[in-house]
């Protein structure tokens, strides 16, 4: 069973679809759109009114990784990264998401420009030691794929407000938590450039293409 959070999800989805359509009309320019809520400020420059768009930006954060090290936004400085939310005892979509993420990991292994940050939404159970064993059992070594834990409210806050991804405790959900199956792609400017269904092969392949096209963007 897939557990998606319903509140606002449809609206959000419609928003992405519209964005996707808009970007599709860009006339051959395959640049990924910038997702998330926007704000506009109007300034007066040289007597003229100018409107600036303020994009959704991932704010600074501080979590602990599977090696017990503190990880802040500095770890993804000048990198693009993929992020998701999961918990190690999840019986539903997480094993599928992790199987799919392993494919992404293998595709970009040792590429210094690409990282993966997986946040646990069950930090009480998923301590750095638990995450360390989970990563090892999954066959993941090194620091390119970070498994993060930290204060629960901080994880839920960044998930809901910044990554536009549902994450919350729900005793009625199987496994006790509700979270989306999204893989979220972030660029070097900390903008969300894509959201993909991490529970499907199609979504995973789209993400891999998205990462490649984003890497191309920075080559120019």
């Amino acid at each position: 069973m897939r557990s998606f959070l319903n509140i606002g999800y449809n609206k959000l989805f419609a928003f992405f679809v519209v964005l996707g359509l808009l970007s599709a009309c860009d006339g051959g320019n395959k640049k990924l759109p910038i997702l998330g809520e926007r704000d506009w400020v109007t300034k007066t420059v040289d007597g003229k009114e100018v409107t600036d768009t303020i994009y959704n930006v991932i704010p600074p954060f501080s979590f602990t990784n599977q090696y017990g090290d503190t990880v802040t936004e500095k770890i993804v400085e000048n990198k693009i990264y993929v992020t998701d939310f999961f918990f190690t005892t999840c019986p539903t979509i997480c094993p599928v998401m992790k199987r799919q993420m392993v494919k992404v990991f293998k595709e970009f292994k040792d590429n210094p420009d690409v990282m993966i940050l997986s946040h646990t939404i069950d930090p009480e159970h998923d301590t750095p030691q638990v995450l360390n064993k989970f990563a090892k059992d999954l066959g993941v070594e090194g620091k390119q794929w970070q498994f993060l834990t930290g204060p629960k409210e901080k994880i839920y806050e960044i998930g809901q407000k910044s990554y536009l991804s549902a994450a919350q405790e729900d005793k009625t959900a199987e496994g006790g938590f509700l979270h989306s199956g999204a893989f979220i792609l972030i660029d070097k400017e900390k903008h969300i450039r894509g959201m993909y269904d991490g529970t499907t092969e199609e979504g995973t392949q789209k993400l891999i293409q998205g990462i490649k096209s984003l890497l191309e963007e920075y080559k120019k």
Partner: peptide
């Protein structure tokens, strides 16, 4: 897994 092969050292 659908093919019954489990997953790495997890399952």
């Amino acid at each position: 897994q659908a093919d019954g092969k489990g997953m790495a050292n997890l399952y």
